[in-house]
Design a protein around this nucleic acid. Sequence first.
DNA 1: GTGTTCGTTTAGCCATAGCTAAATTCGGTT
DNA 2: AACCGAATTTAGCTATGGCTAAACGAACAC
Lengths: 221, 221
Amino acid sequence: MSTQATDLTVAVQDYLKAIYALESSEERVTTSALAGRMGVSAPSATAMTKRLAELGLVERAPYRGVALTDEGRRGALEVLRHHRLLESYLVDRLGLSLADVHAEAELLEHALSEELEAKIDAELGYPTHDPHGDPIPDRELRVTHGLQRTLIDLEPGDLATISRIPDGDPELLRYLGELGLVPGSEVELGAFAPFGGPVTVRTDTGEHAISRELAERIAAS
Amino acid sequence: MSTQATDLTVAVQDYLKAIYALESSEERVTTSALAGRMGVSAPSATAMTKRLAELGLVERAPYRGVALTDEGRRGALEVLRHHRLLESYLVDRLGLSLADVHAEAELLEHALSEELEAKIDAELGYPTHDPHGDPIPDRELRVTHGLQRTLIDLEPGDLATISRIPDGDPELLRYLGELGLVPGSEVELGAFAPFGGPVTVRTDTGEHAISRELAERIAAS
DNA sequence: GTGTTCGTTTAGCCATAGCTAAATTCGGTT
DNA sequence: AACCGAATTTAGCTATGGCTAAACGAACAC
């Protein structure tokens, strides 16, 4: 009698997605981290983690935060699969911009039936990555999450292909688009300015300097 | 300060849609009719009609039912536009069956942004009718709702093209599909059996007898 | 005109998911 | 060992949208 993802409320699905994302950087997810990411108050997050624990979706210890159970992770991955398939479809077939597609997919991801998910997947030829370069969990919800090299891991003079860029911030994505820093584009790494200064990259659109923090969020290989 | 359709909750949008549909056959929509169509108890429907009245979406008189205001009708038509554009897109571009597309569109219609709506509309070439033959409200929410002739209005021997079939019942739609009674197909009307008996129609798939009640729900011209 | 019946509404409940204010606990400092 | 501050939880509230049981009103029959 395992909980079907389709039974989960929209709020529960959103929390699972948030916890999954936060788990990539921290072992256990704290109430305040979760509240911050969800844009809700800490008491609201506490209440929800209790509900998630009752549903068997997280393992919770008071004052110790939460960690996803296998079932919770499954729920998160199903939403993520929906989200990334939708992003892929909307960019590919309806010409949405890389900058705006995240918000659209966010709206639609909870309303996608398994049947339509399968149709979209087939229609796109079973894509493995969304337009931002994030991996799409497959039908069995397996996901390749090898730690990727980012621009700051490269040496000056190295040639590389952009493989992943951040997906949530439309402003940033528009900016990266202008710089020619989009998945699939070729770049040559320039100099690292001293004292933690900017990194120079050459793209199709010329030479650009970006902060190290941003460079660290862009994967290339 | 008019209420934007996007502000309306999913439940409110669903009620507006239901009231709109019921208004086509009855002047005022009663609580029980609404409750029946929404699949909720009568008290729930009463409570919602009060909320709708407070929002200025219906005109309500106790024990007298409700009628949509212009704003309420606008809300209903926006949902209907979403629904029918989605049905068109899903059948056309993703190969969903006529029988199942209604349920899919129902899921997605509340999550469709105005931007995506516009993209889909353009992509399809601004369609005027959905796959069941129902008119799609245009960007200004104008809708052509001339009373159409149905199969029982024809004479034996008449030739006609199916223009609209009922959209909600997958079983019925599958049956109509087998009979070749889908929008666009040519039919020749056969005999009316006496004493309210079935109507015979000749389609691509042969001669079929259907009840008068069903014939009345199928438009042709 | 009175009564009965059916439809409608009121009253009071539940779950979800949010909030603020107040209490509590954890962990580090003295 | 006691204390302090920050994080967390509890307590108690709100709104939405359901429900059942009971009260009420409208309309038709007699």
